[in-house]
Design a protein around this nucleic acid. Structure first.
Lengths: 201, 201
DNA sequence: TATTTTATGTGACCTTTATCACAGGTGCTT
DNA sequence: AAGCACCTGTGATAAAGGTCACATAAAATA
């Protein structure tokens, strides 16, 4: 995508707005950061990250969505969905420079702002305020992960589905039953039965 | 505990060694950081964090261990164990200033270095290098959490137990069967059966 | 040591969920 | 419109794990 494209500036604008919700960044530092960013477009089915590859980027989704999934003996197991205003990456692979054990694939035509790992680290060196932003971003991601973990350790399949309905309604609205079942760790038939039970209550 | 206590300097030394494994910190900044730290001792059964309380500290364990657990309708459900050279905290509560939904309790007489949230944030302001350390620490914690999540989403009960045997043998060695079962999300009888099956293979 | 408490092992039985099979349904392609 | 691929719903059956009951072992306490 060209820097002059309306979608480019649009995506960066959305990111800027988002950044100001988690802390401040001076105009000067925003410009430094902005110079390290690119805006990318992907089509449905494209891979943002493939197994075996080392994750080099964090993507801030501004349109569409994608999913992370493992291949377990031929079965695809979803572990996350990333929607608008969310950050998609394999953080373990990114920070520890390890090969990814899972894939991230586009589900719905995607526009995202790309943070390149090396350039981001360089920006941290240039500006403590940018590193401070990086820390706050990580704090948010850690908090979200912690919540996600509790979901899986504490709740039954049905409770997890009801949790999604309440807390992540867009997951239920935009994603197929089969994909949600894989995410919840249950068979699609079981989710179909849960769904009809919940409806009739 | 007194600052002159041998265990105090001993704990700080262990922390210092650990910090140098995740990145460098100048002697000057180490001294700044050190001034914000306290070394605490807890007895078996003590609570480091109680439900409803806002988490104000991160503890670097140097001796003994503790566990995090939810109370789900009277049943205690373990979600984590923190051993020597690990950081114990409710990161969601700490970073978002929310009440904790779970407790952290000492299982085996504990010595830990305490990072106070407010003082740590102040140290970040004083020194970008300390904030950089904070970011790297979070990156490690995020990576560990991500691995933990995959464990629960991908593996069956028996596979999870075998994973523990291989990757976290101290969990199996130091913690009772009942506590491990609660951590794995299975009945203690089931774990007992898995254990006898695994032994006889 | 004797006594009590707590943790673990094991069988019988029950509940939940997975698996297999198949019947519509929806949307895309030709 | 016909054909095809893919998704969802539902029944029958199998397997995994939970629950209850009780025996035994280990640890704590008197």
């Amino acid at each position: 995508m060209e820097k002059t494209d309306k979608r480019w500036t649009d995506a960066l604008h959305k990111l800027k707005v988002y950044i100001h919700t988690i802390g401040s960044l001076s105009e000067e530092n925003w410009l430094i950061l902005q110079n390290t960013l690119t805006v990318c477009q992907f089509s449905k089915g494209d891979y943002i990250l493939t197994p075996g590859e080392v994750c080099q980027s964090i993507f801030f989704v501004t349109q569409g969505y994608c999913r992370a999934f493992y291949d377990k003996e031929g079965d695809e197991i979803n572990t996350a969905f990333y929607f608008e205003q969310e950050f998609a990456a394999n953080l373990k692979s990114l920070t520890k420079n390890l090969k990814s054990e899972y894939a991230i694939q586009v589900c719905e035509s995607l526009i995202a702002v790309r943070f390149d790992r090396a350039q981001l680290l360089a920006a941290y060196q240039l500006s403590p305020e940018i590193e401070s932003f990086g820390r706050k971003l990580l704090e948010m991601l850690v908090a979200r992960q912690e919540e996600q973990m509790a979901l899986f350790q504490l709740l039954t399949a049905q409770e997890r589905y009801e949790y999604l309905l309440q807390h992540q309604p867009q997951v239920v609205q935009r994603i197929s039953l089969t994909q949600i079942a894989s995410y919840l760790g249950i068979a699609r038939e079981t989710l179909s039965r849960i769904r009809s039970k919940v409806k009739n209550v």
